[in-house]
Design a protein around this nucleic acid. Structure first.
Length: 592
RNA sequence: CGGGGAGUGGCUCAGCCUGGUAGAGCACCUGGUUCGGGACCAGGGGGUCGGAGGUUCAAAUCCUCUCUCCCCGACCA
């Protein structure tokens, strides 16, 4: 039993001025966390207890499918140079030097270290499969930490890595994680969805994210209520409704029209009196492109021009675009680059007259056409000339391209790719991610085992992550009201808080002690509020700090009764005889 | 990195425009009265006003530089 009067639970009447999202405000107000710097937080008593509860669940489920390790946080640069990620991770990696001047970094993820162990130790197919996991602090120098614990620079992650002999084995490891993750999030009391996710440009065949819907989230999820399709917007596809094509003007061939000052799409559509869907939008990038089919070779840092064309009412999905061209990085072209590659200024860019690259690496402009423009006709586009546009432009007849691909964002109301019903788009927080990695690391870092035929093969990896604090944060986001929050009992720092309304009253004090002792004896984690404070103060605190059950020991204690209420429940408190309290709570919490 | 905002007792903020030597509420300490939804009265402790430099007789206030934190963006041309 913990007595509040002896604990450090610094609750605040007001939220810090810079807190925006509910979880941030309440975790600070409830005394769970304190900020040390941007994206860096201390976990105080209640916060650490909740996190330990989360970790207990994660460990319990992970131990069923894998083995727990603990890898170093400080890692030598050479290891990361081997995988090529010393460069790729860029500014997101915290770097330091030791006294000898050697480069080190703080671990942001552990594929390299795990693969290093695998290559040193695994020799035979008989040792496979392996699933190794750890629960450990990760460091990522995020460009913009935000929203309290939601996006931070230091956080605890459960990360696991599977090594299998073949695809079928990877499938099994992946499925094991899928099942374990569902169990973990269910036991953590989260309402979550599993969505298809982007697997990135660096190979990797499949990935799923475990998402919790909340306004505070940073990810956008497209979902279909009709058939259950759900995908991260980075990946989500959509069906477009048919568009009515415009009639050609004049001889039907591209016609150069002076459009002085009509640079933005709204200007162009107004000028021509057309729908944005009949305008061709152009977004021009310089991209770092990898050599396809040669995964050993790192991008030399050479920038290739990549120009995306899509409907005026659509938006480029850079993740899809990078996937389509095999790029690892994109940035918008600057004015000089636009002039050099497109021969025209921003606002008047178009596909007509471009000589598209035949393949993605021949030094010409990579022209990527969104499939929403394929088979369209009589469109309007920029003429690559200041103050001029073309009309009557038909893809295929009037210009060609390097590739056609889905490179646009799906949008709310567009058709579900599976069943055609309208999609919904909503924000969510990612709490877990499972990922079929492939042989990127094992190949590059030289991990090999002998198969049953004595032949050398490269183990196939999967990697799988859970954000520990995000489980806590997501739970707060999902369960709060004006006066505080309530955590699922499985991850709450205490099961129940027993409030003695007036510790100066011996009857109440004694009854409260008895109630707390009985609950403790029944196996509950009990916080006894024995502070010499007025009842109102204690009630406010009890509502605030996230404990799911409240017992109030007050006036009716003289008749041997206390009040039991579930925080956040619609039903109000009910009187319970002191002697029945433990049994009653056991019954009620089993139901909940 | 671009744009916006903010740094004043532990917390939320006022004071700054128009320089004159720092205030309120909450929190904290002491005493008293109270005691089921953030009590009241009285007394008290605590701040080199983010930092550095400058202007001035005088700087929280004006100027310059800098650090930190928050928000939006980092893609629509």
């Amino acid at each position: 039993m913990h007595r509040w009067s002896k604990l450090f639970i610094p609750t605040l009447r007001e939220a810090p001025a810079d807190a925006e999202v509910a979880s941030h405000k309440f975790l600070v107000r409830a005394g769970y966390i304190r900020q040390l710097g941007a994206g860096i937080y201390s976990y105080l008593f209640l916060g650490q207890r909740a996190i330990n509860r989360v970790i207990r669940i994660v460990r319990d489920e992970m131990d069923k499918i894998g083995e727990e390790f603990l890898l170093p946080t400080i890692q030598p640069a050479d290891l990361w140079r081997e995988s090529g990620r010393w460069t790729i991770m860029g500014d997101n990696m915290f770097r330091l030097k030791d006294r000898k001047g050697a480069d080190l970094c703080l671990g942001m993820t552990h594929e390299e270290v795990m693969t290093d162990i695998a290559r040193n130790e695994l020799r035979s197919y008989k040792q496979l499969p392996q699933i190794w996991y750890q629960i450990q602090t990760k460091f990522r120098d995020e460009p913009r930490p935000k929203s309290g614990l939601l996006r931070v620079r230091q956080f605890i992650m459960k990360d696991s890595y599977s090594f299998d002999l073949d695809e079928a084995g990877l499938d099994r490891s992946y499925q094991l994680h899928d099942a374990a993750y569902r169990a973990i999030f269910t036991r953590s009391g989260l309402r979550f969805v599993v969505v298809e996710a982007d697997s990135g440009a660096m190979g990797g065949s499949r990935s799923q994210e475990f998402m919790v819907y909340t306004d505070a989230g940073e990810d956008l999820i497209a979902s279909c209520a009709a058939c259950g399709y759900a995908a991260n917007l980075e990946k989500a596809a959509s069906r477009l409704s048919p568009v009515k094509e415009m009639e050609p003007t004049g001889d039907g061939m591209p016609e150069l029209i002076p459009t002085p000052g009509q640079a933005a799409i709204v200007d162009v559509t107004r000028f021509f009196d057309i729908e944005a869907s009949s305008d061709i939008k152009c977004v021009a990038y310089m991209a770092k492109v990898t050599e396809r089919g040669d995964s050993k070779k790192e991008p030399a840092g050479v920038l290739s021009p990549v120009v995306a064309f899509l409907r005026g009412d659509h938006f480029v999905n850079e993740t899809k675009l990078m996937g389509a061209v095999g790029a690892t990085e994109l940035r918008p072209m600057v004015a000089e680059e636009l002039e050099h590659w497109m021969h025209g200024p921003a606002g008047y860019l178009g596909p007509v007259g471009l000589e598209p690259a035949r393949n993605l690496h021949d030094g010409k402009v990579n022209v990527v056409l969104d499939c929403g423009l394929d088979h369209r006709k009589n469109l309007v586009c920029g003429a690559n000339k200041l103050d001029y546009h073309y009309r009557n432009v038909t893809p295929g007849r009037d210009f060609s391209w390097t590739i056609v691909a889905d490179i646009r964002n799906a949008a709310e109301g567009e058709g579900c790719p599976d069943c055609g019903m309208p999609l919904k788009v909503a924000t969510a927080v990612e709490v877990g991610h499972i990922f079929k990695l492939g042989t990127r690391y094992t190949e590059k870092m030289g991990s090999r085992v002998l198969d049953a035929n004595g032949k050398e093969v490269t183990p196939i990896m999967g990697c799988y992550g859970i954000g520990i604090e995000r489980i806590l944060t997501a739970a707060v986001e999902q369960n709060h009201d004006a006066s505080g929050f309530w955590l699922p009992q499985s991850i709450a720092p205490f099961d129940v808080v027993v409030t003695i309304t007036n510790v100066g009253d011996t009857t109440l004090k004694t009854a409260g002690e008895q109630a707390a002792a009985a609950l403790e004896a029944a196996g509950f984690d009990v916080l006894l509020d024995d502070r010499d404070e007025r009842a109102g103060v204690k009630f406010k605190d009890a509502d605030l700090i996230g404990i799911p059950w409240r017992v109030t020991v007050g006036k009716k204690a003289a008749e041997g009764k206390v009040e039991l209420v579930r925080r956040g429940a619609a039903a109000g408190p009910r009187d319970v005889p002191l002697g029945d309290l433990a049994a009653e709570l056991r019954r009620a919490s089993a139901e909940a």
